[in-house]
């Protein structure tokens, strides 16, 4: 899909202007929230445009492919959506450590960054899948990003590592389906004896797609999860 001339007005948004915007919002708090919510619609053109600007044509193409996958999957049922998204991201994205990709010990990348780099670690996979499914209309309460302890090597070897997967709960009481980057297919949790859940979270109470509500708040940067949510919003999601 050709990229229409998009909202370039924010492209060179300088720090000063951002600071000013923050100030204005601080002054007129509630009014700005209303304005922010009213812009709530994912702007995937913008996302593609940003990918092109930041990472070049290859990245834009990757985002484009992701967009067409999302567009194609729109009419499928939820399980098929899971399958499509899981396969797409697992295939197109190579696993690598943050230190190799981002030169940081731990970095939570946005879907744009993951797609553009074609690489990510477990959080990046989970975040990209989470956001793709949210875009496809899967409600947040069915999705959980789950910290798990993963047994690596032979069962019973005792060697484990920290890992993150995306859980899908078809119903609140059901056993989740696990979307993992380590294995290609989606299995129910009981078929993943190598994984031990520790804690789960989603974006409930934190995030409205396309909105820029509380993310205007500088404390956001201090939380990895809120930080990545904010960056995604800025990138058009």
């Amino acid at each position: 899909m050709p990229a229409p001339p998009c909202s370039c007005r924010n492209r060179h948004l300088p720090g000063l202007a951002r600071g000013w915007r923050w100030f204005v919002r601080a002054l007129a708090g509630p009014a700005a929230v209303i304005v922010g919510v009213s812009m709530a619609a994912p702007d995937l053109d913008r996302m593609q445009q940003l990918a092109h600007e930041r990472y070049g044509a290859g990245a834009a193409e990757a985002v484009g492919a992701w967009r067409s996958m999302v567009a194609d999957a729109g009419t499928l049922d939820e399980l098929e959506k899971l399958q499509r998204v899981n396969t797409f991201l697992n295939r197109r994205t190579a696993f690598d450590d943050d230190i190799a990709i981002w030169k940081q010990k731990d970095y939570w990348a946005t879907p744009l960054e993951t797609l553009a780099r074609r690489a990510g670690d477990c959080e990046d996979f989970s975040i990209a899948k989470y956001m793709s499914l949210r875009l496809l209309g899967v409600p947040a309460e069915k999705l959980r990003l789950i910290y798990v302890r993963a047994i690596v090597g032979a069962p019973g070897s005792g060697v484990s590592q920290a890992h993150m997967v995306l859980g899908y709960y078809p119903s609140p009481d059901a056993e989740p389906l696990v979307l993992d980057n380590l294995i290609g297919d989606i299995r129910t949790a009981s078929r993943r004896p190598d994984l031990f859940p520790i804690f789960s979270f989603n974006s409930e109470g934190l995030w409205v797609s396309g909105a820029s509500t509380s993310s205007a708040d500088p404390t956001t940067r201090l939380s990895r999860w809120r930080s990545v949510l904010e960056r995604m919003q800025q990138e058009g999601l």
Binding site: G167, P176, E204, G205
Partner: peptide
């Protein structure tokens, strides 16, 4: 003063246990 409540998920193994507000 409009501070939004914090929301977090409580897990019981793989199962959802509840949502904390």
């Amino acid at each position: 003063i409009n501070a939004r409540p914090g929301i977090a998920q409580v897990q019981d193994g793989w199962h959802q246990f509840g949502t904390l507000t």
